[in-house]
Amino acid sequence: MENDGLILKNIFFKRQNKPILTNITVKIPWGRIVALLGENGVGKTTLLRIICDLNKGYHGVVNLNGVVDEKRKQFVSYSDSLEGFSKKSSLMKIIDFYELGYPDFDRQRAEKLLTFMQLDPEQRLGDLSKGSREKFVITLTLARKTKLYLLDEPLSGVDIFSRDKIISSLIKWIGPDAILIIATHHLNELEQIIDDVMILKDRRLLAYRDVEEIRVQEGLSVEEYYRQLYLEDRRQ
């Protein structure tokens, strides 16, 4: 069994008999930071949830480090919406809960991240602004020491200062061999930290490319390339 990263092979997924994703095949090597792009409703979140085995009933193979069954779940840190927690819980309480729930949760890293993000552990979840809440989600996600991190829209609705903090944290706290996939509409802000882009359109994978290669070969920014590719595809 191949174990050099994350491999998706012929992934198909239907919801109420309607195809959502068709024939997604891609290989992501260790150490890559990948932006997952596509219009609203194209299936970015669905794909992330398939990868971490939250969406069942897909066809195809998800191979993470050679693990293809549901055991791969334990190697994936997926950003939590925190909806299961009471508004009254303090951030420290939630961290305690995470520490109990995940054996790979690194308490020290979580505390350093809290300081880095300028979050107060005594604060209550319900009192956080949108930006702080997102910073806290990132704190919890990155505090696990694992192979694969999945972030769903970490920058949407977040003020620019929190955005800067979140972006720096992505390179500061993730191990050099881990894979990070970020589903996002904020490509512009992420241009210089990503390795690859993965573009979904009309239920399929339109492109998977190394971003520096795009700049060398096409002389385009990733955003320009993305726009061009999308429009060209429409014309065909």
Partner: peptide, 8 residues
């Protein structure tokens, strides 16, 4: 870290 770019 300083330049906010990817280590690669």
């Amino acid at each position: 870290d300083e330049l906010t770019t990817n280590p690669r």
